[in-house]
Design a binder for these strands. Structure first.
Lengths: 210, 210
DNA sequence: TGAAAAAGCACATATTTATGTGATTGGTAA
DNA sequence: TTACCAATCACATAAATATGTGCTTTTTCA
């Protein structure tokens, strides 16, 4: 029996969801609330398997509610429920430890399936949400490409600079004179359009040259 | 009619999948291959809606294949197919622009559903994969919480250092004497366990203090 | 209430960095 | 074959940085 607690401000939808879930084999709704002002206590008291949390609620919103839950309980599965698949909330919810993210327009049968999936450790997502997540993910790891066409030797030097080596140490490590290190670094600064070691290091991090 | 091209080295599975998909209403398999050595030409020639790509193949593997496809075509939906939900491949596939990631043990009905979902712009994922993706996502954006308990003023100074300001400029910007800037920086170095500006900058980036 | 931080300032000095000018060598592309 | 560039080294100098010691004043916290 999957124990569910529900947070949804719209009375019709709250009742409808409660009846749907509670009336289905294998599911029970322990409680449902119209806001998550006391979500911590409530989740602790009921100890549900799954919390269904509306995002857009007056007072403490769903994301805040999720954070509150996570501050005391990292086990309970939290399914975020929303009307729109807008980017910002999806991102924030996932960051805050949501287990799934589904649209309200999801058909009833699918909804129950999603709840079971969440309860058994899955991460149910409406297709459009999943698409967004993947897109965000590849964006995060995209970028770089800041080429600056540094020569091989220059890349080596830059790398050592980033590692915190001094000119003297770099010279020793690369078996070249310190003046050669200077030459390389000067060239690197020109190419990166900077004029100090720390700026070069910062740029290396920003543009993922490291 | 959803047009599918299949890449799978195991002959039995390849035949099985072809028969399943091709035999289903609304789906057609244009071609199936046992490796993706000529994936670029093949995808261009067939122009499918969905490519199903096995990850573990001899020769050019699925990830490489995906990258090859993406180098010439960003529209076709690519569904990655694998036996294991191992972390590294999932990550790499998503980074490279996969549209979905499903396990081979997925039941036939579900498989067809996933293909349709991919074709219509969704991002079908096996539950265990979705869970992983969410986990990775929240890890990537985790705070890292490298605290070091810097004081407010020290954080300001560090921030300006990272921005590339010299001591003199920081002094001017913060309306304090350059010697005070030195004091702060010395303290910062102690707290971060570094002893140069560029090391501090590097650490700030690494530990997301910026 | 009293010690500990935090923030501010000053002076001194050694080291490191930044910048300039100039030269040699070997590879490579027009 | 000439011209360019990467890589190497040298000498010189100014500016910036790192480090040490020492001194107020204010805030914080046990």
């Amino acid at each position: 029996m999957i124990k569910v607690v529900l947070y949804e401000d719209n009375p019709q939808l709250r009742e409808g969801l409660t009846m749907l879930i509670d009336g289905s084999e294998g599911f029970t709704v322990l409680a449902s609330y119209k806001n998550c002002d006391h979500v911590k206590d409530e989740v602790e008291a009921w100890n549900p398997d799954v919390v269904m949390m509306d995002i857009d609620m007056p007072g403490t919103n769903g994301i805040e509610g999720l954070k509150l839950i996570r501050s005391v309980n990292t086990d309970v599965k939290v399914l975020m429920l929303t009307v729109f698949d807008d980017n910002k909330n999806v991102f924030e919810a996932i960051r805050s430890g949501a287990n799934g993210y589904i649209l309200k327009k999801t058909p009833p049968a699918k909804l129950l399936e999603y709840i079971s999936e969440a309860a058994s450790g899955g991460a149910p997502m409406t297709a459009s949400i999943a698409t967004q997540v993947l897109k965000m993910f590849s964006q995060v790891n995209e970028l770089k490409s800041g080429d600056y066409n540094l020569s091989e030797r220059e890349k080596e030097v830059l790398h050592l600079l980033v590692e915190g080596y001094s000119y003297k140490m770099i010279a020793a490590k690369m078996f070249i004179a310190i003046d050669t290190v200077r030459s390389h670094i000067k060239k690197i600064y020109e190419k990166l359009h900077v004029n100090s070691k720390s700026e070069a290091v910062a740029k290396a991090f920003k543009d993922r040259l490291v």
